[in-house]
Amino acid sequence: MNDQAFTIDDHPVPFRRGESIMEAALLAGIYIPHLCFHPLLEPHGSCRLCTVEVNGKPLPACTTPAAAGLEVTNDTEALNQQRRTLLQLLFAEGNHCCPSCEKSGHCELQAMGYWLKMLDSPFPYLFPRRALDASHPAVLLDRDRCIFCERCVRASRELDGKEVFALAGRGLNTRLIVNSPSGRLGDSDLEASDHAARICPTGALLVRGEGFRTPIGKRPFDGKSLSETCLQRAAALLKEGKESER
């Protein structure tokens, strides 16, 4: 029953018990920017891009349960400026070189930059040196592009029933590690058909041989904005999920 509602930027949003602000918003066709959230996965609350103001208090929309009467503020210049800063930090912290990346046009990090109208990053670029893992015949792991959202970690555990990935270290030493005797992807039980291999929002995990199947200029974010694509995807997946729960 959709008998309860809260508001996002003064629009009434219905919700079902147990839904997060993010889920209810996406089902209602309201976009809240996000990178670590994925409709098929348990929320992680780490990228902080989905931070909204709930009754005046900043909270991540993906981990905050919807509740009747909440007043949520989402699409304001102040919140989008904070999101832009978070994104600029992500770009400066990794090695995100769009011109040489085959994920360009498919990449949610890049599309988020377009959506937030990010022109540059004012921070010093760290140019970290991270190990590339090309040992798997079907999947490439380019840690330069990892933003530590743990989508692959969660997908492997929750959807694939494996535990191929984890994060190790802290702060600037955080890195994506692989669960195999050698620590190499080629020795893990990851398969190209796994959700984990395909759920990366950036070009950190790439299924080989598919990168240029869609030509540049015709890729999802070449024509459509991130919000449009995310809303369609989320609505489809979340509705499917709700149906199957009944």
Partner: peptide
Amino acid sequence: VAVGACAINGGIPALRNH
């Protein structure tokens, strides 16, 4: 004005920073 990827974030030439 910083024009283009290389002026803004180093771009392709910055791959040597690895």
